[in-house]
Nucleic acid binder design. Structure first.
Lengths: 114, 114
DNA sequence: ACGATATTTCAGCATTCATTGAAATATCGA
DNA sequence: TCGATATTTCAATGAATGCTGAAATATCGT
């Protein structure tokens, strides 16, 4: 991950509502959840939510797909892991210090099992 | 670490120059380095640098001490580790997924050796 | 096609941010 | 104390941010 991407991802997470949104999506797992459900859970206006989703999406932390009239947003675990990797990579004077924390969904292994 | 602190730390790191500054301080180790050296290394105006140091300090990511006429800034590894902990804690639906990356200086164990 | 539901787009607004230049403060050496 | 070095403080400015309300778009059930 390049520094530019790291700054973008950090900026995307550096906001109260967006951090909540992302957290919620992470807990929802790779299947994601509809925008309306997020709006309901966090009590956010739909247009405000769209604004924040856009920022998360631009940062690569979230993806969207349409399902009927709902937009399903899902966390991008790989990007989050890349960010964690970038942050720990800066530690220890360059030498990797820890096995680097990995962020994966609780259950539901929809992705390639390594 | 509380969410408020995490947002503050993320915001502090979510800026090009500040990320550079913090990275430099991390590589400098717990002893830190004088403001002037940072200014020279990153080609930043001294007042701009003070502004960014303040933000990093408010976020708890950096500390200062005076040494002669120099101000020595040093990375707060514990705060950085707390942030990494907070971020990975949000993963995996609540259950800790990885041993959590730890950020410590390359050499020079000036701090308590656990 | 029509009305309802789900979400986005747009314009506007107050606030915060990052930077700059000029002046102030603190410490040191002679 | 004087001059130099190191850093901070202050005021000003343009750009970006987060939010709101109204209107637009897309999809569904009938």
């Amino acid at each position: 991950m390049k520094k530019t991407d790291a700054v973008a991802a950090l900026a995307a997470l550096a906001q109260d509502n967006r951090l909540d949104i992302f957290r919620l999506l992470v807990q929802a797992g790779p299947e994601g959840m509809p925008a309306g459900a997020v709006a309901g859970a966090l009590d956010l206006a739909p247009n405000t939510l769209t604004f924040h989703f856009d920022r998360l999406r631009t940062a690569g932390l979230v993806t969207v797909r349409r399902e009927g009239r709902s937009m399903i947003y899902a966390a991008q675990f790989e990007q989050m892991n890349a960010l964690l990797g970038f942050l720990t990579e800066n530690c220890c004077g360059g030498t990797p210090c820890a096995p680097a924390a990995e962020c994966k969904p609780a259950r539901k292994r929809t992705k390639v099992p390594a």
